[in-house]
């Protein structure tokens, strides 16, 4: 916990620098959240003054890599919100099973936990072989971690409980090999994943998908940016495709939401 050492104008200055120098646009991120992340980093890295912090971000490319990693939130878990994964397993993925080929986009995949959870579901439904999971994030360093498919072993107990609650009946440990502090997930799972950087703010649609997962990413965006991203998803989704959001996110206030139908009580919408 850090005091409010960075004020609103300083946040604005810094984000403008970042846009100008590096081309990353954070100006439409939720202000309170990004301010908190920036203040936190400022405190963590013991800068003496805002001027020094600003100069370092602007001129030190290596430091900017850290800046990017730290101001975006990269907390995620496997099978988060088990009831959501249950709905994927029972309703969504079986419907996609009728397609000859399944394309899925995990937008804002961070270190990959959701992509691996999805791959496990597809494998159990015998759909993995005809599926391709595009996992993208703004942040190149988290993608490097995601590619490796190695997660801290002390989290695995919780993930295994989530998996069981989501309707999984296999032995969860059959999907990974444990070595010391890390669990390495089966390469069979990652062989069906394509990892790439993609910035939801500035990059365009790059394919058509039958399922887009973007969970707990939009909470960091302001309303206008959320609407732009919904449009991007709409452009990237086939008819009758599904869009899945985080447990507190909603399509409801987007002007084109009437083209979508919500699936039961989960935050999953189907394009009509």
């Amino acid at each position: 916990m850090i005091g409010d050492s960075i004020d609103n104008e300083q946040v604005e200055l810094l984000l403008n620098d970042v846009l100008e120098v590096y081309g990353y646009d954070f100006l439409e991120y939720s202000h309170a959240s990004i301010k908190r992340r920036i203040s936190r980093l400022f405190g963590l890295d013991n800068f003496v003054s805002f001027a020094e912090f600003r100069y370092t971000v602007k001129s030190d490319k290596k430091y900017f890599k850290r800046f990017l990693e730290e101001i975006t939130v990269n907390v995620t878990e496997m099978f988060r919100d088990p009831s959501f994964y249950k709905a994927l397993r029972k309703d969504v993925l079986p419907a996609l099973g009728t397609y000859p080929f399944i394309r899925i986009w995990v937008a804002g995949c961070s270190t990959g936990e959701e992509a691996y959870s999805l791959a496990i579901l597809l494998k159990e439904l015998n759909l993995l072989n005809k599926s391709l999971i595009y996992a993208t994030d703004i942040n190149p360093s988290v993608l490097e971690k995601a590619k490796k498919g190695m997660f801290p072993i002390n989290y695995l107990k919780g993930y295994s409980e989530n998996y069981i609650q989501s309707g999984g009946v296999k032995d969860f440990s059959s999907y990974y090999t444990a070595n010391y502090t890390l669990a390495k997930f089966d390469e069979n799972l990652s062989s069906k994943m394509i990892f790439s950087t993609h910035n939801l703010v500035s990059d365009r649609s790059f394919n058509e998908f039958q399922l887009i997962l973007c969970r707990n990413v939009l909470i960091y965006f302001d309303k206008d940016l959320q609407h732009k991203v919904f449009q991007l998803f709409d452009n990237s989704l086939e008819n009758l495709g599904y869009l899945a959001l985080g447990s507190k996110e909603s399509l409801d206030f987007w002007p084109n939401a009437k083209g979508y139908k919500r699936i039961k009580t989960e935050k999953i919408w189907r394009k009509l």
């Binding site: 916990m1 609103n8 939720s30 202000h31 309170a32 959240s33 908190r36 992340r37 939130v73 907390v75 707990n216 909470i219 960091y220 985080g246 447990s247 507190k248």
Partner: peptide
């Protein structure tokens, strides 16, 4: 505040949710 999210308040008196690291 919903379980498992930090709750932040914006200058325009709307709420933002945040799923970053636990505090305390």
């Amino acid at each position: 505040a919903p379980a498992d999210y930090h709750l932040l308040i914006e200058q325009n008196h709307t709420f933002s949710l945040d799923y970053s690291e636990k505090i305390n």
